[in-house]
Amino acid sequence: MNPDDNIEKLTRELIEGSRIEIPEGMSDRVMFRITHASPPVARHSFIKVWIFSITSLLLMPMAIFLFKKNFDLFENTLGKAGRYFVFLYEYMLIAIFLGLALFLIDFILRNTFEKNPRLI
């Protein structure tokens, strides 16, 4: 046996002795996360992205409509800066509305499909 083979053999024996036991209950914790807290993230997120995009597109005309409607009022009272203010204001409203809508959709999806994540 050449010296390199000896070293290989010794290394293998030594490293074999370094086997680490997994923390107690780790498997159960993993399974708990799998069965309880894990909706099928990838597909779920994919659906969410589509819902978000479509809803944003649908809400865009509404934002423009509200912007135009309030434009004069804000410009008369706040001057030119009012334009920017009103635009930000409308957008904030819509963002909040979208956030709530997404939360609801997410909640419904989770509760409907969590029992059988492969459905979506």
Binding site: I22, V30, R33, I34, A42
Partner: peptide, 16 residues
């Protein structure tokens, strides 16, 4: 342990 748990979860979701 956190790494292993996350990896198992990720693998589970990516199984299909």
């Amino acid at each position: 342990e956190e790494v292993v748990q996350d990896a198992f979860l990720k693998a589970y979701n990516a199984l299909p």
